[in-house]
Computed example of a mutant assay.
Amino acid sequence: MDDAETPVAASSSPPSRDRFAPLWEPPPTSRRGRPPRVSRDQVVDAAVAIADADGLDAVSMRTVARSLDVGAMTLYSHVPGRDELVDAMVDRAYADLALPDADLSWRPALEQYAHGYWSLLRDHPWLLDLNTWRLPLAPHVFDAEEAAYRILLDTGLSGTRVVETVRIVNNTVAGFARAAAAEDADARAHGTDYASYWEASTDFWEHLFDPARYPSMTRLWSVGAFDSSSMPFDLHISGLLDTLELLIDRAQADGPAHIPTYEECMTHYDDRVADELHPPQP
């Protein structure tokens, strides 16, 4: 397999069983021949370390092999190619996500989940380069989704609104993380941190800014709305949670939506799966 091709963030091909099964099933142990020089976990950890340091584009079978001091062909006994390696990297990164306590009420649990996701993206910013609509079918990714849905499942929101709300929270957190990553990149490139950048713009505010042209900004400035110098590096979602609280209160007042219990779902689970996978022909 040629390792010189331009790396891509992830494959757009539909996932086959050969691609996702290794994420769920432990690799078979061979008792024949020499023991492998490196393990699959070592390969994945090395790839994650490269991506954390230099970005996802820096990860290739060759760079990972070089970091482990083995030949590239050694890696192919653990992962068939780069796409499968990236899948395993995502699963490994998501294993670091601190999931909220199941006993917490929805608001502190959702805030805890959001901060955990924020920390995940700050520790592994290369995750922001992936298409979140096509994350790998991986156990730790599913663990994160399960925890997020569980938080809102019995709040009275409809099933559709639960899924939409989790997506909104994820996208909000990712937006903050993406801005923070961009600020990190600018600070490295120009040697100027966030506070120093804005401190150096005093002349603009004194001589060029026109309060009459920007009255809304002026009014917000007058009450200190722009005073947080650490804004790119803090996660602020209290306003989002306040809005969600209003939606939940209204849903409960109107009559909470009924989402079947797990036991109710399982009574027809096999039939439902069969219908989804093999819909009746007209």
Rank of each mutant, 00 (worst) to 15 (best):
P7N: 11
S12K: 08
P14F: 08
R19E: 12
F20Q: 03
F20G: 02
W24P: 02
E25H: 13
T29I: 13
S30Y: 10
S30A: 12
G33C: 11
P36H: 15
V43I: 15
V43N: 09
D45Q: 09
A46L: 14
I50S: 09
D52G: 10
G55V: 06
V59R: 12
S60R: 12
R66M: 08
S67W: 03
S67I: 02
G71Y: 00
G71V: 01
T74F: 02
S77I: 04
V79Q: 09
V79L: 12
G81E: 04
E84I: 01
E84W: 07
L85C: 14
V86G: 01
V86I: 07
A88T: 06
L97Q: 08
L97R: 03
P100Q: 06
L104F: 03
L104R: 09
W106P: 01
R107L: 02
R107M: 04
P108C: 03
L110A: 05
Y113E: 00
A114K: 00
L120S: 05
L121E: 05
L121Q: 10
R122K: 09
D123K: 04
A138R: 01
F142L: 12
D143R: 06
E145M: 14
L152D: 02
L152Y: 08
L152E: 01
S158C: 03
G159C: 09
R161N: 07
V162S: 00
V163M: 06
E164A: 11
V166N: 06
R167W: 08
I168C: 03
N170C: 03
N171K: 00
N171G: 00
N171M: 04
V173C: 00
A174G: 10
A182L: 03
E183V: 06
D184E: 04
A189H: 09
W205D: 05
R213M: 14
Y214G: 02
M217F: 14
S222M: 14
A225T: 11
A225K: 12
S228H: 12
S229K: 15
M231F: 11
P232M: 09
D234P: 03
I237V: 09
S238M: 14
S238C: 14
G239D: 11
T243M: 14
T243P: 07
L244D: 09
L246E: 14
R250I: 14
A251I: 12
Q252R: 15
A253M: 08
A253K: 11
G255M: 05
G255Y: 08
H258W: 08
I259G: 05
I259W: 07
M266S: 04
H268Q: 09
Y269I: 15
A274V: 13
D275A: 11
E276N: 12
P279V: 13
P280W: 09
P280D: 13
